[in-house]
Design a protein around this nucleic acid. Structure first.
Lengths: 219, 219
DNA sequence: CCGCATCCGCGTTGATACTG
DNA sequence: CAGTATCAACGCGGATGCGG
């Protein structure tokens, strides 16, 4: 018979240790990252985490469910079972953004094996500062190659999702390689613009509000 | 001979994955946390991370060194080799603060009787610097909610134990939540005082000696 | 004692095969 | 497609050893 799974715990009276007791094991935080961009099916998650064992993914999902971080629901849109973050799971993702920003400096540009637009959306979110929002509720269309993303801005909140927004206040187009180089600090936005790698179109005031969101980027 | 250790990597173009490639393995983030409180000796780190294998600690330290997160130096003050964070290591610690804050909500306040108090004593001890002792032998009463601790100070020695001291030189009162927030950097001691979350009473000179013991804490 | 290196037993992980 | 079962390989924790 199976023995009771004695989860390994740091058992320290500390917020960081408590967080790591819950999401410190391999793949768990990346799973939260993938779910942060929207509801995902089991197969989509597998695809987004190359190298994870199938059994391990099932185990991690059950754990996130038990901890109230993710939720298993039936999606009309997908016509199938999907996993999505709870409110607390979203709060966790927000808490991971600074760590993501720190790690961005260490991304290996020459290792584009397995580049995915989704991961860039996360990187995108890590570079936008919710405190710079103007309070205006609006959405920006952000196209990376032929992949559309929505940047939804509200009062001190920013969400980045896959898909095209309705009624966008502006539209940004950029190719994947340029975005990678900008994110890693290897190219400035101005250089990308001059090289025709990116364009912005829309209401100038919206562009001004949008530009203010960016942090830690060479203009 | 042993084979070259092929470090396991997520190999994803993503800031979070890159960060976890560096500090995602077991104990590593907690090690950064402990180093963030000031330079520490090998033995002190071992004491602050109960359960870590001794060999593993050495391995993690070498890794943090190679990644430019920690530095191995000789400390005049300690009279021994110590490890300390680099500037980039400090930036990493800052990036962990929101995750710590998220995890604080999950710290089990109603943990089994002794466990809570024992870990509290360890956490307390980790933030006091024996080298800052004045040489005066005295004891401080440290009350967390309704739980009394004794901080016994001698000549470059500090011991923290459960229970109420005889003849204390001063008395500190603080509520558990405030103490954890201070430890996580989410609150300064001054803020806690102004909010009436903590009080110190006793001989002003003893208070001055006591205050000097604290390291790596926002006042 | 302190600061590690080495070895061993076991739990966790990764890849493949299998089932409804 | 959404998982489960199985097993080999790896990471980890504990004990031991060893020079300073």
């Amino acid at each position: 018979m199976t023995v009771v799974a004695t989860r390994r715990s740091y058992r320290q009276f500390c917020g960081l240790a408590a967080a790591l007791d819950v999401v410190g094991e391999r793949w768990t935080m990346l799973l939260v990252r993938d779910l942060a961009l929207g509801a995902r099916r089991y197969g989509e998650l597998l695809e987004g985490l190359p190298g994870i064992g199938e059994g391990l993914l099932a185990q991690r999902l059950r754990h996130l469910e038990a901890e109230g971080i993710a939720r298993r629901t039936f999606s009309q849109a997908h016509g199938a079972v999907v996993y999505e973050l709870t409110e607390d799971g979203m709060a966790l993702f927000e808490a991971l953004v600074p760590l993501t920003a720190w790690g961005l400096k260490r991304v290996d540009l020459d290792d584009d094996e397995g580049v995915k637009a989704d991961w860039l959306a996360v990187a995108l979110r890590a570079r936008l500062d919710p405190l710079q929002t103007s309070g205006v509720e609006e959405r920006y269309a952000f196209w990376v190659d032929d992949e559309p993303f929505t940047i939804a801005v509200g009062d001190e909140t920013i969400a980045v999702e896959r898909g095209e927004p309705e009624d966008p206040a502006l539209r940004v187009d950029i190719d994947l390689d340029a975005l990678m180089q900008i994110g890693a600090g290897a190219m400035s936005i101005t250089e990308a613009r001059e090289a025709g790698r990116t364009t912005i179109s829309g209401d100038p005031k919206a562009i001004s509000r949008y530009a203010r969101l960016w942090t830690g980027i060479r203009r």
